[in-house]
Design a protein around this nucleic acid. Sequence first.
RNA 1: GGAGCCGUAGUUCAGCCUGGUCAGAACGCCGGCCUGUCAAGCCGGAGGUCGCGGGUUCAAAUCCCGUCGGCUCCGCCA
Length: 603
Amino acid sequence: MVENLGDFRRDKYCGEISLEDVGREVRICGWVHRVRNHGGVIFIDLRDREGIVQVVVEEAKDPEVYEKADSIRPEWVIGVRGEVRRRPEGTENPKLKTGYVEVRAKEIRVFNTSEVPPFPVDEETHVSEETKLRYRYIDLRRESMKENLMFRHRFYQITRRFFEEEGFVEIETPFLTRSTPEGARDFIVPSRLHPGKFYALPQSPQLFKQILMIAGFDRYFQIARCFRDEDLRADRQPEFTQIDFEMSFVREEDVMEVAEKLVVRLFKDLLDIDLSRPFDRITYEEAVSRYGTDKPDRRFGLELVDLTDLFKESEFNVFRSAVASGGVVKAINLKGRNPSRKDIDDLTVFVRGLGAKGLAWIKLDQGKVTSPITKFLSQAEIEGVLRKMSAEEGDLILFSAGSWQEVHRILGALRTHLAEKYDLVNGSGWDVLWVVDFPLMEWDEEEGRFVSLHHPFTAPKEGDEEKLREALKVEDLEERKRIVHSVRARAYDLVINGEEVGGGSIRIHRRDIQDLVFRLLNISEEEAQEKFGFLLEALKFGAPPHGGFAFGLDRMVALMRGLDSIRDVIAFPKTQKGICMLTSAPDRVTPDQLREVHIKVVE
RNA sequence: GGAGCCGUAGUUCAGCCUGGUCAGAACGCCGGCCUGUCAAGCCGGAGGUCGCGGGUUCAAAUCCCGUCGGCUCCGCCA
């Protein structure tokens, strides 16, 4: 039944057969997509990487081939030798690329049979993520998944060509490296040769690319795998891919220009979309105060409006005390939707889920102001709100009061939630922008110290170094916070449609500045030496001014393909618990393996 | 670490609130018929640990508790 390949040589992909092949004999190989048996004539849709072509077998003309074809089932792997012919008039299928032709089978070879697949290889059937990942090889046979990976392939090739043209050198950096204390949790790898010692998988090639600059490579890039042992999301996998690059003797603009040119190239070549350069830039401060997030989606309005001044003296305690303790009162206006009480209650549930105590609101309904809070507000305050919010009939104004961070976090999340719920994002537009002027550090309440917003190697704005020295001299913590928070970083994030697709910075190339930053981050001399000693040392041996950038490749590809989850652009992704459904990794290893790497598992 | 949704035939899902003709549909699969279909059509058939464990009850897919898994989100993470 099952035959060897033998002398059968494919000379064309199924999906590539066209009118030009009419009259020619072809050999094609592939998977049986569908069989339509009409009794006397059998149609087999044969599928390979490039597409589907219809194979026809007629009992009257080819009785032996017919008998064989009669037993063939979906997902069998077969080879067909046959003549390409134009389909009879009226039987063309314009839905197929090959729909004007068909292959009359003169010979069929069954290379392999298949069990009935756990789910059909089509676009119509919705299959659970669990099943799809367990049988990933079948899922990947589906047209859309195949397209996703082919798109990703072209993405790589364009990227490589681009960097080559721009004079960048592709260099690989190690996977087995050392643990870094800042940032995400590391995946660690035990060492057989060094009992009790561990490698770590890199969170990014950050330090290596800086060292490559010190080594003089000047312009480096890599399509690099990165590993972070943190909880997963639709846009986060434990291993993911970055387009990483670094340049010497450059300022922010130089790095951003390269990043922009790559994005423009990718959109043009892959989607035939013209993005205009330079991309918009907004400051971190502006992004957060207008949109409540450092990765704003500007395809819809719902901007945050500051009402702090209005409520300084308010009788409404919630607002007044927020202002009194240095916080803010802000609001967004959901225009003209006239939401029901139930809708508003749902929004309250939503913000509670984000940690808000409640949701104050004012609604304009049939010329009247409806609200649970107006009884605490003066007429002047109500009028002030309505004026500042440009409130009209059917509008709903939603408030948040509290610390600057808290208010923006909640209203920012509420803003995107509303946009989704009320379908405010209009169509296919692309909102591409840079967010710049990030603070260098922020105070982390939990850790009781400053932490880097990007990473500890990000340079402060030229001229701001002095502030760092000053901050170290100040004893008073609040005063020190004030000074440190005023220091801007030479960092830049690229945001597309509200998703952070990449980020980078100009790095610190001077040992004295790096020391200063470590001191402010409360990283001791000893710790810095132990963890980054190799970088600190390298900085002493002629480190050029340098900076770079890294794109989240998976996110970019998913975004460009209009997909919500990066799992769909990764051949073998993990589940939310970090499990590979295909291989069942992670799994136990044998006691021998553990002994070899000097590990004892504590239950 | 936390919240929500989901888990029933190979697949997708209904049934669950209100416990008792609740083991159901569609697709797929198997068999038959059928010479131009293309998600072929028509006729017939097989197929279930209702995720798992415990509890309540005369009786549990259905109610309760626990647990495992998938997804989404918060925390976490550039």
